[in-house]
Amino acid sequence: MSHFYGVELRSRLLLGTARYPSPAVLEGAIKASGAEVVTVSLRRESGAGRAGQNFWSFVQELGVRTLPNTAGCHSVKEAVTTAHMARELFNTTWIKLEVIGDADTLQPDVFGLVEAARILAEDGFEVFPYTTEDLVVADRLVEAGCRVLMPWGAPIGSARGLNNVYGLRSLRAHFPDIPLVVDAGLGMPSHAAAAMELGYDAVLLNTAVAEAGDPVEMARAFALGVEAGRAAFLARPMEPRDMAQPSTPVIGKAALGD
């Protein structure tokens, strides 16, 4: 079980809802992943448009919890206003807070992130900050009221996996009691397994599933990767060694040499 702001979840995989080839494939992927939380967003809609209404009906029928994001926000003001609109629209105090600092890497603006997190936490939001693996920034986010941290594995949509395993491991060691989620940059189930092997509480991904040739099967594969990684962490892996150590005992080996 993982816990986010007092909510207990069986699944340790949070799934994004964007970029799927069709709503049917998205629905199949969510079911195959076992995700109980899906990320959603909000965008402009015209008076004649129905995309938003249709998507809202679709999400409600899925019966999963929504985690709205502030994707695309580059300033504290934008992110805070977007969070307020999301809270009303999705009827949740949860917000995946993104304040983007660089357009090429979509790297978080951690200074704006901390400022926006503080404003939102004081206003009753339960903030899931999309951040880097920087320890000091993480400390500031916790001080600001965040009770979940979501460091990136790699830039959003890059499928590069865990760029800084050392940094992620340090973060886990530094915050043993804060739920940690690797968010963004995962490409393969082995990346998700690696995050879980580090003791992370969950992973959040979207593009790796949505843009796979068979998103439903890839969602299932990620679920297995997450489960395997978590089980491995709980099983306490052996420490790596520099030199070989025979796994087959040598005592009692037949003397067959000259």
């Binding site: 994004g16 967003s41 995309a51 994001n69 979207n206």
Partner: peptide, 10 residues
Amino acid sequence: VEVVAPMQGG
């Protein structure tokens, strides 16, 4: 005036 509606997101 800005008017937004639910949308897919990651």
